[in-house]
Structure formats: structure tokens, C-alpha cells
């Protein structure tokens, strides 16, 4: 759907595509998250009206699931896999080094809105452990030393947020 349709109409289109069934709430939120990389408050208000659901229930769902974020995400999304397989291959040291170099805590977005660093429990590429995703692209067999190189890749990676 084109980017320029104003947000309220866009949300209505998404809700309508699910016939405003209240059970499709999570899917609707996922499409809004996909579109705007976060869930704007006005969108939740709109969904509450259109799907006749209490705003408190929607807010509960929006804050429960890790796939949703109420704050806008950074231009680049860096996901460090902290699944067990990667953990035993010391993904913890890579995560801590990324936090140091990118000056952003896990689960947060950098103040300059450039980078969002998040942890994910297993992306299913355990052979490559420890693995880091930058805007959806996998980087495997990492050691703490290579984190510096990784930070460069993040800086000049052209693609905007898509994951």
C-alpha cells in the first residue's frame, strides 16, 4: 500500500482486510508495525474504535508481545541471537561489546535514532552461531574482535529498516 495514505485511513484499510474480526488483533498490529516500524498511539486508538475492542486490551497486547514496539525504531535493526546454541558459543561477549561500541543498551534505540539493538531467542541458524542479524542479513561465526568491523557495516548499510 502506498506510503503516503495518511495513517488513520491506512489503519482502516488494514482492519478492513481482516473484516474487523477482533481475533485478528495481533495480525493487524503486526501489519501496522511492519508499515511504520512501530505502533503509534493514534493507530491503537483507531484500532480500538474500528474493532470495538477496549483500548486497555489492545495496549496490553501491544506491550506483551516482543514483536511490537511503542517507540519508533532506529534506522537499522541489529538483532543479536541469544539462543542457547549461540549462548554456549559465547554470544554474550559479542552482545556486551556491541552495547559498548554502539552506546545503546539491549532492547533500546540509540538517541540519534540510528540503531536499535535487540536480542532474539534463536533465529534458526544455529550452525552459524554466534549469529547477528543486521537489517535481516545474517552474519555468522562471529568473535568479539570482529564486532568493530560489524559496527562499520551497520553505519553504512544503505537499506532502511526491513526485517
Amino acid at each position: 500500500m502506498s506510503q503516503n495514505t495518511p495513517m488513520p485511513e491506512r489503519v482502516d484499510q488494514i482492519v478492513a482486510s481482516y473484516q474487523a474480526r477482533s481475533t485478528a488483533l495481533i495480525m493487524v498490529l503486526q501489519e501496522v508495525q511492519q508499515e511504520y516500524s512501530y505502533l503509534p498511539p493514534e493507530a491503537l486508538q483507531r484500532i480500538s474504535e474500528r474493532m470495538d475492542l477496549a483500548l486497555s486490551q489492545i495496549y496490553g497486547v501491544a506491550t506483551f508481545y516482543k514483536a511490537f514496539s511503542l517507540e519508533p525504531r532506529g534506522k537499522h535493526l541489529v538483532s543479536v541471537c541469544t539462543g542457547t546454541a549461540c549462548h554456549v558459543r559465547n554470544s554474550q561477549s559479542i552482545l556486551e561489546r556491541l552495547e559498548r561500541d554502539l552506546h545503546v543498551e539491549r532492547g533500546q534505540t540509540s538517541t540519534d535514532r540510528e540503531v536499535t539493538l535487540e536480542t532474539v531467542n534463536c533465529v534458526g541458524a544455529c550452525a552459524l552461531g554466534p549469529v547477528v542479524l543486521i537489517d535481516g542479513k545474517h552474519y555468522g561465526h562471529l568473535t568479539v574482535g570482529e564486532v568493530e568491523k560489524l559496527v562499520e557495516v551497520i553505519r553504512q548499510c544503505p537499506c532502511s529498516v526491513q526485517h
Binding site: 477496549a54 486497555s56 486490551q57 495496549y59 496490553g60 506491550t63 506483551f64
Partner: peptide
């Protein structure tokens, strides 16, 4: 009224 709810987890 459903004014209240749990948030986060």
C-alpha cells in the same frame, strides 16, 4: 468499563 489492564509481561 475496561479502563484498566495489565501491560508488559
Amino acid at each position: 468499563a475496561q479502563a484498566l489492564g495489565f501491560a508488559s509481561r
